[in-house]
């Protein structure tokens, strides 16, 4: 009986219902496709226009060329700006990672007076609008008769990067089982050896992530940099200034290059992790 009903019912499903079922099953794929398209159209655009035979302005497609990629420093000042940004980024990364990690350990591992206050205060630079932070840092430097430039920019970047490092590393420390450190102490490792052999290796992925984050935040920053860098041209400042008279295609080359470098780092990290897990 029931078999007959099933056979009879099967052909009557309308195309509308069938589409709805298909749609219901694949909704998440459709959504994912749309979301990624939205996210990656600007990247694709930037990448495509790095091959534009543009001449002065890179707004209209004029023809395919590899010359921008063969000579990325072709446009005046572009590589100078890039080197400045990388230098600032590396110095900021080193200082903010070391200082931030130390703060994260203090807050995450030790009980002291003012711990919860520090915990709250560390969020402030993240919550403060960059325009306010940038302007007040500039007035602070001027008050102390320090001229804007390379080192003031580094100091300004460290200020807001520390917060991100603390938050990232602290999360990793919080997930660390204190019994592992107790086990190390139980197995004849003194405080320093325990930190060096157990704590640090286990927190290291968090520290590495924090360092990458600090670098990209510093490399990317425009507002605070614009206030405090004076005559030093960073890559974001260069692009912003160039936008008025046409961004050279070399900027697209460098931007695409950075994107693929970041992608390569993430992929390498994934592969290493998979290997380790196996």
């Amino acid at each position: 009986m029931s078999k007959k009903i099933a056979e009879a019912a099967a052909p009557t499903i309308s195309p509308v219902i069938r589409f709805r079922r298909w749609f219901g099953r694949n909704l998440i794929r459709v959504y994912m496709f749309l979301a990624f398209t939205y996210l990656f159209i600007p990247v694709a655009y930037t990448f495509a226009f790095s091959f534009n035979d543009s001449g002065k302005s890179n707004l209209v497609w004029k023809g395919f060329t590899l010359s921008n990629w063969q000579n990325p420093c072709g446009a005046p000042e572009v590589c100078n700006a890039l080197v400045n940004s990388i230098n600032i980024g590396l110095i900021v990364t080193v200082f903010s990672t070391i200082l931030g990690t130390m703060i994260a350990f203090a807050i995450g591992r030790h009980k002291f007076r003012g711990r919860s206050t520090s915990n709250l205060l560390i969020f402030l630079p993240m919550a403060t609008p960059e325009i306010v932070l940038g302007a007040s840092l500039l007035s602070l430097f001027l008050t102390f008769h320090i001229n804007p430039g390379f080192w003031p920019t580094v100091i300004a970047h460290v200020v807001f990067c520390i917060s991100f490092v603390v938050v990232t590393v602290k999360a990793r420390i919080a997930s660390l089982d204190p019994r592992l450190e107790q086990a190390a102490m139980d197995l004849y490792a003194n405080e320093f050896q325990t930190f060096r052999r157990v704590t640090l290796p286990l927190v290291a992925p968090g520290i590495a992530g924090a360092a990458l984050l600090a670098f990209s935040l510093s490399f990317d920053d425009f507002i605070i940099t614009n206030f405090n860098s004076g005559t030093v041209i960073t890559f974001p400042k260069f692009v912003y200034t160039a936008a008025a008279r046409g961004i050279p295609a070399q900027a697209n080359v460098i931007a695409s290059g950075m994107f693929f470098l970041a992608l390569a780092i993430v992929l390498a990290g994934q592969i290493v992790n998979r290997r380790k897990a196996r």
């Binding site: 089982d177 019994r179 592992l180 107790q182 086990a183 190390a184 197995l187 157990v198 290796p201 286990l202």
Partner: peptide, 13 residues
């Protein structure tokens, strides 16, 4: 003195 911990506490790394 050495301990066998309740959750073993083997070093995961």
């Amino acid at each position: 003195i050495n301990t066998v911990f309740q959750n073993y506490a083997l070093f995961p790394h």
